[in-house]
Design a protein around this nucleic acid. Structure first.
Lengths: 344, 344
DNA sequence: TTTAGCACTCGAATTGTTCGAGTGCTAACA
DNA sequence: TGTTAGCACTCGAACAATTCGAGTGCTAAA
């Protein structure tokens, strides 16, 4: 177990390193007003802390930098309290103050304010469409073989896909089918749609429409294909601000991950338990993120977490500030969404 | 006017520099099999070429690099013929071979193949929506105040926006309105929609629907707001492959431009005359693109150029190959689109 | 007109040096 | 027994000096 003095020293080392990016030496530390011991004493303590794995040297006679274990301890136990300035709070509030019509815009704005306030790369994931309920389905024929299938959800989101239509089916059949769908399936959550289609309407439709099954299959496919939910990024290039990534070789794999979007998307989608989560360095499974930390926060309406917002930065990240900002944005976003859902 | 020998030397210098990225010296040149003169002769010619502004030194005793004027001359007059390999042609063809349902996917794939074949950043702009015609309009009420307005075009593209509805208007009115719209306006190009709405249907609607004008305004706005057409990028991070951008300071503004997307979008939209266009270094108006060249090509159906595809790379770009690839992709894309439109 | 030759220039790479910030260890001190 | 002063040592960063090679321009001879 660490002594109080060791904790103090660990905290000051990490705080200082996060601020400066430079290895922290014993003399530097001894000059800090929070610390009353001589550099020699500190050296002894640092040697112990190093032995325990909380800090590391970059070379034999260098100052110390936090190890991942050190960051982990810091994040779990030593985070200095952080308050947002009035101006910051105001900025966040103003983002959610305007009446929003589209969910996408809202998420985009959330990402923007996050990266603006932190100078890191931010990511925002919208609520799963599967959560939302069918408002209306519509099929618009384009020509003999193809049509656009449109699904409108109660959140105002519109999904659409081009589908092929079996030649045996005519416009009247299509219309009938759509009508039946809308009568019977309105209000069903998208995630249950496939099942309900089978149990609730299949029989009726088989009775009314020739060749129903072949259309059903196409439609099922359409609805089943994991609707590509959008991930919203902001400040992608902010990664380049960090001195630890001044070397192109080191940012390259990172920018690739970011550009690809899919890996990050999966990572965020996994985050389902409420609250803030911090992944430090190698705790991230993705290769290329060894020098990064990812901090995610969920937002929710009621009890159910709906989606996540996140900040990606170097392991030497301003954890305290980032977590505070994330919490604030998440709660304002939750509130905005609650209002939004209420109005639906 | 340049002599034949000067042209030869200029061409070989640029070819070599594009390949190697290193300043080209007289001795290196004299060893090339295409060149039969001594290094001293070449030095004299190079001095002349420099005086004329086609090449430059990086420092007083260095080899020569092409100036922008040099590149311009090269692109206009000296491009070595370039043939694609069977494999490349095959790759391109296979992209357009599959049946495509969505225009967006097609453009995304075009961008992908471009960056894959060139290792530069590629950009693809879809056909303007304004070109396409109204297939169907739909308004789906979400609650008392809001509804989703959906516009389906003949190309299968779906535009949607959330709109507010005046409280005086009820569901019946809405339906009536939509029906009238669809009856009278189907087939009208989106760009003419606003005008036609005024001339063709306003009277009828005013007769049938209370408060028509206030809805009209909302709708007008919706349709008028420059529908954000998507630009498709691929290989954004390829910019970092180029040795001239190994310095973070130099890529940063460039990545900002790319991330922003809007400036590039405008740039490409401007490109309306058919064919390939090359903008070298400072010929690009955007700040941050001084060390880049942008090569754009239009694709068309019939005579009308519909959109553009482009490659962004360093001024030291493989012009010949890039132009060849762009031409090929543009023509295959044009063909694919022709088929597509025909089937509509 | 072309070319060989020569003096000269400059950047890149290598080497040596210094400086400062850091360390660990030991011995003295409260 | 815990703390501290002192000392020898280490290493990286910064800087200057040196060398090397690839390049140039100019001149004179072929």
């Amino acid at each position: 177990m660490l002594t109080d003095r060791q904790l103090l020293i660990l905290q000051v080392i990490i705080d200082d390193f996060i601020r400066s990016g430079q290895p922290v030496g014993s003399r530097t530390l001894s000059k800090k007003h929070q610390i009353a011991f001589s550099s020699a004493t500190i050296r002894n303590e640092m040697a112990d802390l190093e032995e325990l794995g909380y800090i590391e040297k970059t070379h034999i006679s260098s100052g110390r930098v936090p190890s991942e274990k050190g960051y982990r301890y810091y994040v779990d136990h030593l985070l200095p309290p952080q308050r947002l300035t009035r101006a910051d709070i105001q900025k966040i509030r103003s983002v959610f103050a305007e009446r929003i019509y589209e969910l996408e815009k809202l998420m985009q704005k959330s990402a923007q304010i996050l990266s603006e306030l932190t100078n890191y790369t931010s990511i925002a994931l919208g609520p799963t469409f599967k959560e939302s309920k069918l408002k209306r389905m519509q099929i618009v024929p384009l020509n003999e073989q193809t049509a656009v299938a449109i699904v409108v959800t109660d959140t105002g989101h519109v999904e659409n896909r081009v589908v092929t239509i079996p030649s045996s089916m005519d416009a009247g059949d299509l219309e009938k089918m759509v009508n039946i769908f809308n009568e019977r399936l309105a209000g069903v959550p998208l995630m249950d749609l496939k099942e309900k289609m089978e149990t609730e309407v299949a029989d009726v439709l088989r009775r009314h429409i020739r060749n129903y099954d072949s259309v059903l299959n196409t439609l099922m496919e359409t609805l089943d294909a994991p609707e590509e939910e959008k991930v919203f990024f902001a400040g992608k290039a902010n990664m380049l601000n960090q001195p630890e990534f001044s070397d192109i070789q080191k940012v390259r794999p990172l920018l690739d991950i970011i550009e690809q979007e899919k890996d990050i998307y999966r990572l965020l989608r996994k985050q389902t338990q409420k609250g803030v989560r911090v992944s430090i360095g190698h705790e991230n499974e993705l290769r290329g993120m060894e020098n990064c930390s990812l901090i995610t926060a969920t937002y929710s309406v009621g009890d159910e977490p709906l989606g996540a917002i996140a900040i990606l930065g170097p392991t030497r990240m301003e954890y305290s500030r980032v977590i505070t900002v994330l919490n604030r944005v998440a709660s304002d976003l939750s509130a905005a969404l609650a209002k939004w859902y209420q109005s639906q």
